[in-house]
């Protein structure tokens, strides 16, 4: 399972004659489900349930959420022991304290240590700390991940490139009801002199799901 993000290349597929970016999804053949989405949305607006502006604002809000929010929380916990205690006591309130609008989300942070590795899954559907990290990756929603993470987490982690030693305990967390989970990874050795902003760059989305470990940020070539 690959685990690099390509979330930043949207709206760069060229520009229309009027100067607006093309939405490639708008130019494909209309599907039955797209017809349903259009019809439902129009009926909701006509019935006064919502407005086009409210829908657009909700999309913008969701687009503004990203793993960078969680990375900032993790880096703060690495550098501020009192904050870390608050995060482990109530991760929702600790995230709100940093200014993240996570709505009614009930969030629990689980800490990786020298002898414990945590892994998050939702076997029943696709529960994910979306109000902090944005929408989940596609692989998180697959049947393969959802069924295997609880049964053979070590094999799954090996495929992600994470080898957990046999003398360490894996704790898998199945988001079965009202809680959502975020992994607080262990701070890597050799990062003592980094600033909180530099540390945040070590924390990827997958680190906070438990399918990766923090690592030095790689130089990304732009324009690819």
């Amino acid at each position: 399972m690959p685990h690099d993000q390509h979330d930043h290349d949207h709206d760069h597929h060229g520009t229309s004659p009027s100067g607006h970016p093309y939405r490639h999804d708008n130019d494909e053949a209309l599907t039955y489900w797209q017809r349903m989405e259009i019809a439902v949305r129009e009926l909701l607006i006509e019935k006064g349930v919502t407005t086009a502006a409210e829908i657009a604002a909700q999309i913008d809000l969701m687009d503004s959420r990203s793993p960078a929010n969680g990375a900032a929380v993790v880096a703060r916990a690495w550098t501020d022991p009192a904050f870390k205690q608050r995060l482990l006591a109530n991760a929702g309130d600790a995230s709100r304290e940093m200014g993240f609008d996570i709505g009614p989300l009930h969030l629990i942070a689980v800490e990786n240590t020298a002898d414990t590795h945590n892994l998050i899954v939702c076997t029943l559907c696709s529960c994910y700390p979306r109000n902090l990290l944005g929408l989940p990756p596609d692989w998180y929603k697959t049947r393969a991940y959802r069924s295997r993470a609880v049964r053979e987490p070590r094999a799954v982690l090996t495929e992600f490139g994470v080898d957990v030693p046999q003398d360490s305990t894996i704790r898998v967390h199945d988001s079965t009801a009202d809680m959502r989970y975020i992994v607080l990874p262990a701070r890597p050795a050799g990062t003592e002199n980094l600033s909180v902003e530099e540390l945040a760059a070590w924390v990827t989305r997958d680190c906070m799901i438990g399918t990766a470990l923090p690592r030095a940020p790689q130089v990304v070539s732009t324009g690819a």
Partner: peptide
Amino acid sequence: MEGHDFALWEKRVDALMVLC
């Protein structure tokens, strides 16, 4: 398998789900 950018209609479905 990797997270892609969602299409506009998919983002609208998500928004309708949250709002309703």
